[in-house]
Design a protein around this nucleic acid. Structure first.
Lengths: 219, 219
DNA sequence: CGGCCGCTCACCCGTACGAGTGTGCCCCTG
DNA sequence: CAGGGGCACACTCGTACGGGTGAGCGGCCG
């Protein structure tokens, strides 16, 4: 019932450190190591470990892509990503790639061991700072549902729709005014109403909305 | 420097239990209790604790709404939600309401104390099962963006392409900066270079361009 | 080795933009 | 007929945006 672990990191010291740390645990065993992403994928396919400790920055193939491949292959291996800085924007990419967890390399032995056990059990865990960012990001993402019934093209008047389409062509207020032969201030009023009605913030979001609503189509 | 805690739960036994547990910690002090959401909001306003342990199911006002009010008020108090079952769909609501963390009531004393300290420090934490669900949900929500390496638009650099895609999602410079974890001034530089390279005038035209170039696609 | 490039960041400055408020006209409908 | 909605226009105000310039740093290449 011991948990079998593979460590992927390009720095020997890091691999050694974690290896010693984890092998000291009674129910964890480090069964393999890899110095880059490509090797990590191969080792996992070959050794079928329960958990992979994955560094992000590696030569050959980075940890993100390696994670993606490991998850795509139907191994049971769970990926626990380790990184030096939580500042990485890679956090999101790693999670999307299918990582089960995200810890900082300065984690204590206890935290690391706990982490390995948690992901081996099929659950997930994140470093506290990462958790905070993920929650914030999640709140933002799910706060603005893509298709709220309130935001409808149908709510716009004919004129407003016309203006919206022109916004989605990349025209400025002045150009739209010229095009429709009215004053620029008039266009500004229209734009304001459009933004309010659709619950958007600026003309760029309006352009995006127009494309998403198929008011205009690429090509 | 002790962490001041308020406990909100309608069951006396629960309040008692957690209270004893936490007061046993040298650097944590339970300074108040509340039997429902309304009282919780009042206690927080009155006692200005560092952390609130919040049950979700309570009479008068549930923990979600109470959390929302506490966060909305400008107190420094962090809310750590406690629930019996992780099954709750309330998890997402709680996080959107501004909770800093989410633990199950069967958490160990150590986990609970750790949790209180983590949220008091301004970070966040979640129970492992909740973490897994949040990551899954997050991956689903933010799945839309795709591999930027595949198509190199014009002679934009990888980073610039990345920024362009985010522009085409309707993000402001500040939001892009946050997302990529760099300074806003950096994003402004990228945006400028993108506009020059593509011969565009503003970010709206850039968004249009991104759609036309199929860097992003509707739906 | 030096130089180019990509990425990062800072500061200044002018302006288009967006928010808010108010006015007026036309047309349709209750 | 009065009222409401669509449309047009003006004005103020604060700010995000975009232009310009300069500069530091790490990697890659000739």
């Amino acid at each position: 019932m011991t948990i079998r672990v593979v460590i992927a990191d390009d720095q020997m010291m890091v691999r050694e450190g974690f290896s010693v740390l984890l092998n000291a645990m009674p129910d964890i065993e480090v069964v393999g190591e890899a110095v880059d992403g490509r090797e990590a994928v191969a080792r996992v396919a070959e050794l079928r470990p329960d958990v992979v400790l994955m560094d992000i920055r590696m030569p050959e193939m980075n940890g993100i892509d390696a994670t993606r491949e490991i998850v795509a292959a139907d191994t049971e291996a769970k990926v626990l990503v380790l990184t030096t800085f939580d500042l990485d924007e890679y956090v999101y990419q790693a999670l999307r790639a299918g990582a089960s967890g995200f810890l900082l390399k300065d984690a204590s032995a206890r935290q690391l061991a706990d982490g390995v056990k948690v992901v081996a059990a099929g659950e997930s865990l994140l470093a506290p700072t990462v958790t905070r960012r993920l929650i914030t990001e999640f709140a933002k993402l799910s706060d603005v549902p893509k298709a709220p019934t309130s935001a409808r093209v149908g709510d716009l008047t004919e004129r407003e729709t016309e203006v919206l389409v022109l916004i989605a062509q990349g025209l400025s207020n002045g150009e739209i005014a010229e095009h429709l032969v009215v004053a620029e201030s008039t266009i500004k009023t229209h734009v304001s109403r459009i933004l309010v009605k659709l619950g958007l913030r600026d003309r760029t979001q309006a352009a995006v909305f127009a494309y998403e609503a198929r008011l205009v189509t690429p090509g």
